[in-house]
Structures are given as structure tokens and as C-alpha cells.
């Protein structure tokens, strides 16, 4: 499985990451080195082994479904690059 520049462009699109054209080739090369190295995992017999998704050994705790905080409009908006009338301002998405 080899990554070419079109693949890098496609992944970058999926990741919403602008990559300059001249960076596509070096990035493809680096990804191939890393992914090629990771292919040694194919040597391992993982046939019936369950995938490990968490290192926490306990069942997730439950809590009551109640409101614990709120009314923090100022705190929520304080770091936004652009706000107006108590809202986030984002580029227009509906014509």
C-alpha cells in the first residue's frame, strides 16, 4: 500500500487541512516511510485477539441526568475569533 500525492490531497481534504502543493510530495514520502515501518505489525498473529480500546479496567460510571451548570454565555464566547449579539460568527453556509 503506497501513498501518492493524490492520496495525500484526499486525506488532507478529509482532515480539512490546507497543504501547499510543494508539500504534497515530501509528505507522501514521509507517510510511506512511517506506514511502511508500521507494516511489521502484519508479522503478528492477531487472529482471535480482541482489539483493545481502553486501558481503563472499570465500567464507566453513571451519573444522574440532571443539569449541573449553565448560563455561561460570556465564558463560552470569550475566546471566539468573531462574535455578534451573543453568537459565534461563522462563514455563510446556506445561500
Amino acid at each position: 500500500m503506497s501513498v501518492d500525492t493524490d492520496t495525500v490531497r484526499r486525506i488532507a481534504k478529509l482532515a480539512r487541512l490546507a497543504i501547499a502543493d510543494e508539500m504534497l510530495e515530501p509528505m507522501a514520502k514521509e507517510l510511506n516511510i512511517i506506514l511502511g515501518w508500521a507494516e511489521q505489525l502484519n508479522e503478528v498473529d492477531t487472529g482471535s485477539v480482541e482489539p483493545m480500546t481502553s486501558a481503563a479496567q472499570t465500567a464507566l460510571k453513571k451519573r444522574s441526568d440532571i443539569v449541573t451548570d449553565g448560563h455561561m454565555q460570556e465564558a463560552v464566547l470569550r475566546n471566539a475569533p468573531l462574535t455578534e449579539h451573543g453568537f459565534f460568527v461563522v462563514p455563510k453556509v446556506v445561500e
Binding site: 500500500m1 501513498v3 492520496t7 486525506i11 478529509l14 482532515a15 507517510l31 506506514l35 508500521a38 505489525l41 502484519n42 503478528v44 492477531t46 485477539v49 480482541e50 482489539p51 483493545m52 480500546t53
Partner: peptide
């Protein structure tokens, strides 16, 4: 993004999680 993308998830991500076990 690559190892989670369609067609590569099992080959890379799922395999790595099995090795983690």
C-alpha cells in the same frame, strides 16, 4: 486520518489495537 479512512481501518487501526491487547 489515513489509518481511520475507509479501506484502511482494518489493515492498520484494528490490527494495531489487537497488537495492543
Amino acid at each position: 486520518t489515513y489509518v481511520l479512512s475507509a479501506g484502511y481501518y482494518d489493515a492498520y487501526y484494528l490490527r494495531a489495537q489487537r497488537v495492543r491487547t
